[in-house]
Design a binder for these strands. Structure first.
Lengths: 365, 365
DNA sequence: TGTGCGCGTGGGAGCGCTCCCAACGGCTAT
DNA sequence: ATAGCCGTTGGGAGCGCTCCCACGCGCACA
């Protein structure tokens, strides 16, 4: 038996409209009626037809997650699974569908297509690039979207990001406090905002501790383990040799660890290492990696929630209202690779976790 | 200006119906008319409203890809990105949308929901488990679906799979031909069909070469690199020590290589290794890994194409027709880890690639 | 000149919802 | 007693398509 609103209405002895109100949580329904209708809905395992809802209601309840990067790059990085998980959870909670938009065809085409066909109500864009023509294009279409990460070029768009600058700075200050003074860094690709922000944090951390920065102490990788190894090899050839390295991702840090070991250096006795991410391998690395934890799943969750909220509140095409900028705090997770274990235990306990001050920060653009 | 079929029709001086025929490639349209309508459609960048099409046409043109596994497991494995890529390409070509169904909520709920709400026309299920209650449930709903991989429990369902048995057998026979006789294997998790099939191929390969199998020579891993290392360590303690190992995945093979190196053994002089997958790390491993290549992207492509074909041809709910079983060939890619490089170059060239006989195999259930 | 047929085309009737307005008591305010 | 209002409810009018039937035309046939 094909179920429709009308059929449920008949069974419950009410009208189509009332059933519609019930399944949409409209408050204007008598409690007794509401209860009775719910009974019938559940008894028949009724689910309103998505297409009909979308057509009549002019919204599909589908939001897209766009990752403008090569697919293999996406999946190699543990960042995205977590981001997806978080966004999916938020969608699930609010009755939305999350659609991963794999950018296969010509980018322009894809989006005009998705947008024109009204297939999605809004977009989550996980653009990592500092310069993204994509984003510009989407903004031109006035399509509701939330950016995961920030975009220096567009202040007028709602973003959700982790506090990369502060996290990196924290890591560097911690190293300095441990007594290291020749602190180098391995950065991510310099066309990515997060990589630039972490480098900025590194520089600020040095400055805060009164340490002078040196160009030779900054080597770029591409987030991959291998690139971390290579960058580390380069750093080890610099004179004077660094005694500590802040690595902008755990993956690269693991690679750096290998390079140090291959060079016959002990970590953290000869050289300390701090990573960024706090993903799986960090805790089991040899030695366990001190790292800056970023709440990636929360990032996804918040991004999706924010977008949905925006969609539900927007009276019309009034999408271009004040952009929100949400920044999530990062946290320093101290393990062995930063040399703290070499110090008194009392001190260790006190500094085990250094949360970034501020917590969730909301600000208006 | 909000574009609709009607509006395009007006601009092209024809009726709504004719425009509909044009955008749906209906042959019953005069070529001149068709051309004129296309012009207008393109000039206005018109895309038919998805919801309206879905409602009127009773199909959404969305197919789901379900991977009933933990999300991190999905993404850690390079198998899935490729599968997704292939499926997405097929969907793209035929005007379908691919929706990744992240199984977050209670499995039962999710599917009843997706199915009842008519949100998807069909499902691609990448179930790896030998016993999957999920699948049973979906079959009970008579929902159109194609299984990626095979399911020993359900012969009545269309499947697309690679020839794991033959691939594994090929690898083992190759090792035997290279002169190795104490051939061990590292299998995948024994509750997964692909792992069982590869083990079966291992056994058949031994049998074909007149080598007796021994239980001690079979160690299970979980596809991860670490588990490969551990399984290899176990194998190296067996007496007599194996002189060759067929490893059921490249990831595990890389781990096995590390264990061998750690034990002071040379590969392939002291012990040969052959992997399975031919993913990125295989070619760059030390030594380069001889492996069985499986065309994962083709697998995805074919699975999606098959499902779409089934959807478009099915006159009605007549989904339960003869199930197809498509099997894709695997191919042995010879590199250094199998010891062939130790032999005369002439021989090497001749055996560089040993494709499985048969190519694509279609059979009716 | 009439009949039959196929091609190309137009328009009606929905698909299953949401949105909006009207209607119906039962109240309180005048 | 009459007007006005609120909490509930019902039903009409679409949303933008697809599907199907009917219509008009030119042609070959008798």
């Amino acid at each position: 038996m094909k179920m429709t609103l009308e059929e449920i209405a008949r069974l419950a002895g009410v009208s189509r409209s009332t059933v519609s109100r019930v399944i949409n949580d409209d408050p204007n329904v008598n409690d007794t009626t509401r209860e009775r209708v719910w009974q019938v809905v559940k008894a028949n395992d009724f689910h309103p037809n998505t297409a009909a809802r979308a057509l009549a209601g002019r919204r599909s309840r589908v939001i897209g997650l766009v990752i403008p990067q090569a697919l293999n790059a996406i999946f190699a990085d543990p960042y995205f699974p977590l981001l997806i998980q978080g966004s999916a959870a938020a969608c699930d909670e609010r009755g939305y569908y999350l659609m991963l938009s794999l950018v296969l065809r010509q980018a322009d085409d894809t989006f005009r297509w998705l947008i024109r066909a009204r297939h999605m109500d809004g977009l989550l864009v996980a653009s990592a690039l500092a310069e993204d023509t994509f984003l510009t294009r989407l903004l031109d279409e006035h399509f509701p979207l939330v950016l995961v990460g920030r975009s220096p070029a567009h202040a007028d768009i709602t973003t959700v990001d982790v506090d990369n600058v502060h996290g990196a700075s924290m890591a560097v200050r911690h190293l300095a406090q441990m007594g290291y003074s020749r602190i180098a860094t391995i950065t991510g690709p310099t066309n990515m905002v997060a990589a630039l922000d972490r480098r900025e944090g590194y520089l600020r951390g040095l400055q805060a501790m009164g340490i002078e920065a040196s160009a030779g102490y900054m080597q770029a990788g591409d987030w991959s383990e291998g690139s971390g190894t290579q960058a580390m090899e380069r750093l080890l050839r610099v004179t004077p040799r660094p005694d500590a390295v802040f690595v902008a991702s755990d993956n690269m840090a693991v690679g750096a660890l290998k390079a140090a070991r291959a060079a016959g250096l002990r970590v953290p006795e000869d050289i300390a290492v701090v990573g960024f991410d706090d993903i799986g391998p960090a805790a089991t690395a040899e030695p366990p990696l001190t790292t800056v934890r970023q709440p990636i799943d929360q990032l996804g969750y918040l991004a999706a929630s924010t977008l949905i909220e925006q969609l539900e509140s927007a009276p019309a095409a009034e999408t271009d209202r004040a952009a929100q900028h949400i920044v999530l705090p990062t946290e320093l997770v101290v393990r062995a690779s930063c040399g703290q274990a070499l110090r008194p235990a009392a001190n260790y306990a006190a500094m085990q976790r250094v949360p970034s001050e501020g917590g969730v920060t909301y600000s208006q653009a």
